Amino acid sequence: MIADVPRRAPGSALEAQVRVISALFMRELLTRFGTSRLGYVWLIGEPMMLAVMISTVHWLSGSHLPNDLPTFLFYGMGYVPFMMFRSITSRGASAVTSNMSLLFHRSISLLDLMIARNLMEMMVCAAIVLLFILGGMLTVGEVPSDPALLILGLLLSALLGHGLAMVLGSVQVFLEFTERLVHPFTYILMPISATFYMVEYMPPEAREMLLWNPLVHVHEMNRWAMFGDRVVPHFDLGYVMIWVIGLNLVGMAGLRGARPRLSMSD
Rank of each mutant, 00 (worst) to 15 (best):
G78N: 05
I115H: 01
M137I: 14
L119Y: 03
M114P: 00
A93S: 15
I128P: 01
T89M: 13
M77C: 10
I88A: 10
F85Q: 06
L156T: 00
R180I: 04
F104S: 10
I188S: 09
F104C: 02
V143W: 15
M100P: 00
G92E: 08
D112Y: 02
V80A: 07
V80K: 03
L102P: 00
F74I: 07
A126M: 14
R117M: 07
L131C: 14
G141F: 08
P70H: 05
V140Q: 08
S90L: 10
F82Y: 15
V143G: 04
L156R: 02
A93C: 13
L152A: 12
T97Q: 12
I128N: 04
A95V: 07
L175E: 14
L131G: 05
G135D: 08
A95M: 11
S157G: 15
I133L: 15
D146E: 13
I133A: 07
S157F: 07
F82P: 00
L150Q: 07
T139F: 15
A165R: 05
L155W: 09
C125H: 13
L168Y: 04
L111A: 13
E121N: 10
G92A: 08
L181H: 06
F185H: 03
L131E: 11
L134N: 02
A127K: 03
S157W: 06
T89D: 09
A127C: 10
L110E: 05
H105D: 14
L156I: 04
V124T: 08
G78W: 07
G136I: 07
T71A: 13
V173R: 05
T89Q: 08
L113D: 05
L150T: 02
A158R: 02
